[in-house]
Design a protein around this nucleic acid. Sequence first.
DNA 1: CTGAAAGCGCTTACAG
DNA 2: CTGAAAGCGCTTACAG
Lengths: 338, 338
Amino acid sequence: MTKNNITSGDVARLAKVSQSAVSRTFTAGASVSPETREKVQKAARALGYRPNALARAMISGRSRLIAVFVAYLDNQFYPVVLEQMSSALQKEGYHVLLFMTDPGNQDMVVQKMLEYQVEGIVMASATLSSNLARECARTGIPVVLFNRYVPSSPASSVTSDNIEGGRLLAHFLVGGGHERIAFIAGDEDSSTNRDREAGFYKGLAEHGVTVWGRAVGGYTFDGAAHAARELCSQSERPDAIFVANDHMAFSVMDVLRNEMKLAIPEDVSIVGYDNVPESGWGGYQLTTVEQPSVPMIEATVNILIEQIEQRLVKRRAAVLPARLVVRESARLPKNSAG
Amino acid sequence: MTKNNITSGDVARLAKVSQSAVSRTFTAGASVSPETREKVQKAARALGYRPNALARAMISGRSRLIAVFVAYLDNQFYPVVLEQMSSALQKEGYHVLLFMTDPGNQDMVVQKMLEYQVEGIVMASATLSSNLARECARTGIPVVLFNRYVPSSPASSVTSDNIEGGRLLAHFLVGGGHERIAFIAGDEDSSTNRDREAGFYKGLAEHGVTVWGRAVGGYTFDGAAHAARELCSQSERPDAIFVANDHMAFSVMDVLRNEMKLAIPEDVSIVGYDNVPESGWGGYQLTTVEQPSVPMIEATVNILIEQIEQRLVKRRAAVLPARLVVRESARLPKNSAG
DNA sequence: CTGAAAGCGCTTACAG
DNA sequence: CTGAAAGCGCTTACAG
């Protein structure tokens, strides 16, 4: 009613062609003669015409919309991923409908998203409830869990090799001559934490070592601070801590240095996970494991687009290699020269 | 064709009511008898029906889509804002179509966005080209520039009081007895930089002081490092630097400490702008000015929704108060006890 | 290559 | 309160 939008009909009238001809001019690969196209483009320019993507989506069944769920944007891993993922999707002609995972009514938000006829879903926070996952599978909407997985789910997943990453860190710490090696967990329900922890213990076991202590930080800054205090305020304290992600590691380092007046790595070695930008900052110089975000995003976009375009959703799980990044927050392995 | 979606027609058939009745059941405030509503809801549940938001948008002219443009997601100010803004918009029943401002074809991206019939636009990176701004004004789409403004533009804007913030910092530094006060600029074309710089010089002038030196960091981490080297590698160096945002300030602090072996604040005081989360981290403890992100986001959402709902776009400019946050990266004013 | 026509899935006057 | 019908702005067989 209040819409004063220019439609293809308006352009057709001005160009003295049919509405179909206008539509074809704006559809890649449609057959229009050069003359017709010329007339249409001229009229369209004159009127400031722009095709209505919603109408196109309705009729063609292709919205070119991808829902991306995020949270934890205070952990720099996610903003960087979001930035790269949006650009990659934009480049492929898709657009991002962004949702913050609201703790509480996750399901309602997901319902809303489905109403928008998204063609694919990226879950970079939480995971789809099994109900919803089933609904998506039924509707044929591909879902990819980013940096998490649920073995029993029909959803695809893209992760880095968190088990191997944990293992790498265990070797590094044992090699550094540490004798009381502790672990600060993230969210214990998350696959990242489970895998990093399992890999870490496995790596320790390979040297006949067991973990000296353990606390839970829940992947939050404050939770990590509590965990650090819990672990280090006893008479005997660890001489190395693997903190399940970088974001928490910064908090742990702050507590150890400022509250406990401990030197890193002289008194305690700290290693993290993710290799977020701040890890390389002078104030931290954190030794960590890099999650290969660029390949992870490529894999995500590829899985999504392949399944959208083939209209065939089958579960895929991409696991990309992790890499140790050595900086200065942990003592180096002694035989590193050898 | 390949769509196996359940439509309101399917639900109507099963519930033995008209398609209109189904539609009314899912429209808040429409008149349906309790019995009809009941029958419809039962059938809808049985079929797993979900209204098609695209069709609704088409017919009602209300997409409930807001385009948000961001960039610089490595500067923590923006992820935090994006998170809060999305949640606020979600709460109001709007959804975020996210766009990364691709340097280069900004205009093409904006065209794409307009095709999706967004009801409002938030520019948290760059600004709309004047062409596009005019087009939006014509179509009646409200635009709000977040953390930036263009006086000549029809777009609304929400900023903090960058002039006053700069002034506050000048007083603080002069009060601290600094004698060679320098400035590291961000992007010289940005309104934030212009205002912070102008306010800073004004504040210095109020004490009869002029800036000792100046370099440009372009709001990037690397640019700031260069600027710091340029400013501090001469025989005489500043004893205080106002860096135009926190993100750059961290880089400057790293260079001064690690490359130049200077102590902060003993040798050089550093102050920043934004009060991003990292400012409070142990490794930096940056004295800075807080941009009130929550009120800024509220103002943005309010302006947007008001203009959408009243179908009346008129330029508004909200300027919210800035506040000094004193930490440990700068010497304190001497008479702070008095 | 081109136009007339059907139809995507809804909302919303209109008449009852 | 209810249903039949028009119409949002497109794409896409279909026939020429």
